[in-house]
Design a binder for these strands. Structure first.
Lengths: 244, 244
DNA sequence: CAGTGGTCTAGACCACTGG
DNA sequence: CAGTGGTCTAGACCACTGC
């Protein structure tokens, strides 16, 4: 029924079209997308086909279904759990018994990308990047030290003040202020010892083993938009993972 | 159309019924389950309803769909990738460029469960458990040291010889010889320093930070059936995780 | 070729939300 | 109440597998 050429299941084509609209910003984060009926009419397919397309988008966390209300563009802000990508949890503390993290921006500057940073972000060595270093503390105990690198152009105008003044997850600032939506990420985890600067910021000795978590976060189309190197203290917290 | 009482969507009830059959061993690992049409007839529902039930089972990796052939009971054996639950990968090596692990059983004995082990396995302190210690090496380099605890009764008859003689993943031995199918697991990851015995087995100094991975693996109904504490060297490998 | 899972449709009805 | 997503059905046809 659709006029789209090529061959793949219809619902995949519909999914791709919806994805384009999401990416183009036709609907803003946390806003509803058109109803299944409307989309079915727009694309000249049955509601069931639209449904299957949206089912996949929902499974990939790009969109959130809410019965009786509609389907909404996913966001890192009002996410039922904040910090969607952070898997570090307190050892004993039940659920979110732990208050919000106390955040401190240690450093924030523009510089030219080193080779490894450039490669991770699909830039060329020497391209402008923004580097941020911050510490997250829980109950006064510094627990996470993060260095992160962002490509210069999409994040033009991002400053330490902007970061420090923001309430809520950093990724929701990226969405609201720069239109950059992180959709998927991959992490490489190692055990390391901190250098003296790192040890000082986390208030541990340099003989304390720490979790090194290197994350590359991607927007749509698997475009890498952030490199983040975290050092996690694991004496009071642990990295929690589910295996299916 | 179904006669099952209570209220939940029909396809959920069907899913539960199929799950019961899986659990009861009506169909063995790697064997096909009845076709959608047959199941629809058996349960007096439409094929579409069975389909949705099976879709969920497939999403949970309990079952594998193969177009034109049928739907098969998932197994840890012929899994397209072996070691379904092992997320440690070589740093540079592309995919499975790395040969199979060289496995060494260091120890295997029956003893009474300590409090922490008992709690993880939902046993009582002092209940019989089997404890195994083994080392996995890649290219002659010992990389993983694992201690694991299994509840005594389901694994009656498991010996070091049985383990050492088995080709393929340990979980596929559990399936084939003891009818125990691990379906889900959760891991708690920390950075630690090894004690002297651990350091010796991995041939590192006791100042080498290692990844501590504590896994609890569950069968059907979320019954815990294995506690596994792994120490991973992360100088040549890393723990890889995907975040959706 | 027959049998399997995979797609697509059209229509009915249910459950939840909000005005 | 009307509008949304969620379930269920029945039937047609497609794509892949193996005999």
């Amino acid at each position: 029924m659709s006029s789209t050429p090529s061959f793949s299941p219809l619902y995949q084509q519909i999914k791709a079209l919806i994805l384009q609209s999401l990416q183009a910003g036709e609907w803003k984060p946390a806003e509803p997308i058109p109803s299944e009926m409307e989309l079915a009419a727009r694309f000249h397919v049955s509601q069931g086909t639209v449904r299957k397309a949206i089912d996949e988008l929902a499974a990939e966390n790009l969109v959130v279904r809410r019965q009786g209300k509609g389907t909404f563009v996913a966001t890192h802000a009002e996410q039922h759990v904040q910090y969607r990508f952070l898997k570090l949890v307190p050892d004993s503390g039940s659920l979110d018994s732990e208050g919000p993290a106390e955040r401190t921006i240690v450093d924030c500057k523009r510089l030219r990308a080193a080779a490894d940073v450039a490669r991770a972000l699909s830039l060329r060595t020497g391209d402008a990047v923004l580097q941020v270093r911050r510490v997250l503390a829980y109950g006064g105990v510094p627990t996470i030290l993060e260095d992160l690198w962002l490509p210069g152009s999409p994040f033009k105008g991002l400053t330490a003040e902007r970061l420090a003044g923001w309430r809520g997850p950093m990724y929701s600032l990226f969405e609201a202020e720069f239109g950059v939506r992180m959709v998927r990420a991959e992490e490489k985890i190692r055990a390391v010892l901190p250098d003296t600067a790192q040890a000082a910021l986390l208030r541990v000795t340099s003989a304390t083993p720490l979790l090194s978590v290197e994350r590359v976060a991607h927007t749509y189309q698997d475009v890498p938009m952030e490199l983040r190197r975290g050092l996690y203290r694991t004496d009071t917290h642990h990295y929690r993972n589910e295996l299916g």
